[in-house]
């Protein structure tokens, strides 16, 4: 998600200040997620019953609990740091699953055409025409909730975007000289698609992933907010908002801290994605 995804030609002019600010925020959030265990001052389940509902520093709180504490005296900052890690891991995992699944189906459709392509197109239509939240809720109702299932389910979000792009671009690539030349040399289809077509269309797919990443964060936090996503004692950003809602009148900081992180992160990734799209591929919408 850092500067490494930019190909050489994107370096012609410096990105706007807003995009740089977004990159700084994203880098910071990533570092927090990676070093969560070193950064958090307290354990997420460590209770301090003498310091319950303590406001943040500057609003009558102490330096020991910078962002205050919740009803059980748990440190909000520590919970926030761990929540960032869990929400990001889920969002990254889900985006990766969606990208791999969508690209594979798109390649299959482009390679076999005929009925395979029709089936893939029908699945794309189905996925695009149903609100994903409802489908996800239905699956959770039928199967119950567990973390692996939840991540897999999130991974079904947005695959149709990758499938559509991969299919279109692979069909176009098949008509070009380089794919035909490799095929004439006797390369297996898997080699053609993975070693030759994929690197040529990767930039577009990465942009698509950048666009669906914030949507996955919103979806995960929404489901966790409803109590149907990440389950306690684990915590995620949406989970914290859902919990903080109970103390809206007495301790709004429990809810405001994770809300701000969700909004800023989705905003920054969207800004970055929009900018990347304009640079790399203006045709993608």
């Amino acid at each position: 998600m850092s500067g490494t995804v930019l190909p050489a030609r994107a370096g012609r002019s410096a990105p706007p200040a807003l995009v740089i600010a977004a990159l700084v925020w994203i880098t910071m959030i990533l570092l927090i997620a990676v070093f969560a265990d070193q950064l958090r001052p307290f354990g997420i389940t460590a209770l301090d019953l003498k310091a319950r509902l303590l406001p943040p520093l500057g609003f009558g709180g102490t330096a020991q609990h910078l962002l205050g504490t919740d009803e059980l005296g748990r440190d909000v900052l520590s919970r926030l740091i761990v929540s960032i890690r869990i929400s990001l891991v889920i969002a990254f995992g889900a985006t990766a699953i969606a990208a791999v699944l969508g690209t594979t189906l798109g390649f299959l459709a482009a390679h076999f055409r005929g009925w395979v392509e029709q089936v893939v197109l029908m699945l794309i239509d189905f996925q695009a025409s149903m609100p994903f939240l409802i489908l996800a809720l239905a699956v959770l109702a039928f199967f119950g909730n567990s973390l692996p299932l939840f991540v897999t389910l999130m991974g079904l979000y947005g695959w149709e975007r990758h499938a559509r792009i991969a299919r279109g671009l692979a069909i176009a690539a098949n008509a070009q000289g380089y794919a035909a030349a490799i095929r004439q040399l006797g390369a297996r289809p898997s080699r053609i698609y993975l070693r030759h077509v994929l690197p040529n269309i990767a930039a577009t797919l990465i942009v698509a992933a950048t666009l669906s990443f914030p949507e996955v964060v919103l979806l995960e936090s929404g489901l966790s907010f409803l109590g149907l996503g990440v389950q306690p004692p684990m915590t995620s950003l949406g989970n914290m908002v859902g919990y903080g809602r109970e103390y809206l009148t007495r301790a709004p900081w429990i809810l405001l801290a994770p809300s701000a992180v969700i909004v800023l992160t989705t905003l920054c990734v969207s800004l970055l994605g929009d900018w990347l799209r304009d640079r790399l591929d203006p045709t993608l919408s």
């Binding site: 929404g222 907010f225 949406g238 809602r245 909004v263 989705t266 905003l267």
Partner: peptide, 12 residues
């Protein structure tokens, strides 16, 4: 802001 602020955050 309309699509980066989740509805539960805006509502609350």
């Amino acid at each position: 802001a309309g699509f980066t602020v989740p509805s539960f955050v805006l509502g609350l």
